[in-house]
C-alpha cells in the first residue's frame, strides 16, 4: 500500500512537471498553430542558463532565477522574429521542419558548450518544504514544484482572462483573420506568445533540472514527451495540458513500478497512438478537426 501511495505521489508530481512543460507548447500552438519540436531545447536553454548563472557567475538564487526568466523571454522573442516571422503564410510543413531544425541547432549549441554530462544545481531549497509523514516521503523539490506550478497557472489564467494582451492572444487563437480585422496586432501576439512560452519553458526547465539533474538529452526527450501529454489533454487546452500531464505521469510511474522499468518510456507513445486512433481531439481539445 505504501508503495502504491508513493508511486501515486511520484506520478502526480512527475505528471505535473510534464503538464508544466507542455503549457508553453500549448501556448504556441494555440496562438500560431505551430507544432514546436524545439520545445525540449527551450526547456534545456532555461535550465542551462540558470546553471551558468548560478555556478559560473555565482549569482544568488533569486536574481539568477529572474535573469533566466528574462533571458528566456528574450530568446523566445528573438526566435520568433528571426525564424518564424519569415514563414508566416508558408505551408505548415516548412514551419514544422524549421522547428525540427531549430531543435537540433539548439541541442548542438548546448552540447558544444556544456557537454552531454549530467550537471546538478547546488542545493538551495529550504528543507521545511519537505513533508515526512509515516512511510510517505515528499522531498522539498516536489512541494516547491507544486507551488511554482500553481502560481504560474494562476498568473497565466488571470492574464488570459483579464489582461487586454491576453484577450488579444485568445482572439488570435480563435480566429486570426477576424482578430486582424478588428485591429489586433497579430504579429506582436505571435512574438509575445513565443516569448511567454519560452519563459514558461525556461521555468519548467529549471524545475526539471532541480529534480532530475540537467542533461541536454534528457531535457530534449521531455520536450518530445510533451506530445502524448498535449494530444491526451487536447492540443489547445492549457488546463488539459496539466491534466494530460498528470495522467501520463501516473501511467509512467505505475508502469515503471509494477510492470517493467524499461517499458516506462514507451508507454506514453503507445497511449499516444491509441488516442490518435480513438479520440484524436483529446480530453479537452476543441472538436473542430477536419476529417479529410
Amino acid at each position: 500500500m505504501d508503495f502504491f501511495v508513493q508511486l501515486l505521489i511520484n506520478g502526480i508530481s512527475v505528471g505535473f512537471l510534464y503538464g508544466l512543460s507542455a503549457m508553453g507548447f500549448v501556448m504556441i500552438f494555440k496562438s500560431s498553430s505551430v507544432l514546436n519540436f524545439a520545445h525540449g531545447e527551450l526547456l534545456a536553454m532555461g535550465a542551462f542558463l540558470f546553471l551558468a548563472l548560478v555556478t559560473w557567475a555565482q549569482l544568488p538564487i533569486l536574481p539568477a532565477f529572474l535573469i533566466t526568466l528574462a533571458g528566456c523571454f528574450v530568446l523566445g522573442f528573438v526566435v520568433e522574429r528571426l525564424f518564424l516571422r519569415p514563414l508566416i503564410g508558408e505551408p505548415l510543413i516548412f514551419v514544422i521542419m524549421l522547428t525540427v531544425g531549430l531543435a537540433s541547432m539548439f541541442k548542438g549549441i548546448l552540447l558544444l558548450i556544456f557537454g552531454g554530462n549530467l550537471n546538478t544545481y547546488p542545493d538551495f531549497l529550504p528543507s521545511f518544504l519537505g513533508i515526512q509523514r509515516g512511510m510517505i516521503n515528499i522531498p522539498p523539490v516536489y512541494t516547491a514544484t507544486l507551488i511554482i506550478g500553481l502560481t504560474f497557472l494562476a498568473v497565466f489564467g488571470l492574464f488570459f482572462k483579464y489582461s487586454s494582451q491576453g484577450i488579444y492572444m485568445r482572439s488570435v487563437a480563435d480566429n486570426q483573420k477576424a482578430a486582424l480585422s478588428l485591429g489586433v496586432h497579430v504579429k506582436l501576439v505571435f512574438a509575445l506568445s513565443w516569448a511567454i512560452a519560452a519563459l514558461v519553458a525556461g521555468m519548467s526547465g529549471i524545475v526539471l533540472g532541480i529534480i532530475n539533474g540537467i542533461n541536454v538529452h534528457d531535457l530534449s526527450a521531455i520536450g518530445l514527451k510533451v506530445f502524448p501529454v498535449v494530444i491526451l489533454g487536447g492540443l489547445d487546452s492549457i488546463g488539459g495540458a496539466i491534466i494530460g500531464g498528470i495522467i501520463i505521469g501516473l501511467l509512467e510511474t505505475f508502469t515503471g513500478g509494477y510492470l517493467s522499468p524499461s517499458l516506462r518510456d514507451v508507454v506514453p507513445y503507445i497511449v499516444l497512438v491509441f488516442i490518435l486512433l480513438v479520440k484524436p481531439y483529446g480530453l479537452f481539445g476543441l472538436k473542430e478537426i477536419e476529417r479529410v
Partner: peptide, 21 residues
C-alpha cells in the same frame, strides 16, 4: 573539447533552417 557529434547536430540544424528560410 571539440566533439564531432554535437557539431554535426548543430550544422544539420543550421542547414535545415537556412535552406527553409
Amino acid at each position: 573539447n571539440l566533439n564531432l557529434a554535437p557539431l554535426r547536430e548543430f550544422v544539420f540544424g543550421l542547414a535545415i533552417v537556412v535552406f527553409i528560410l
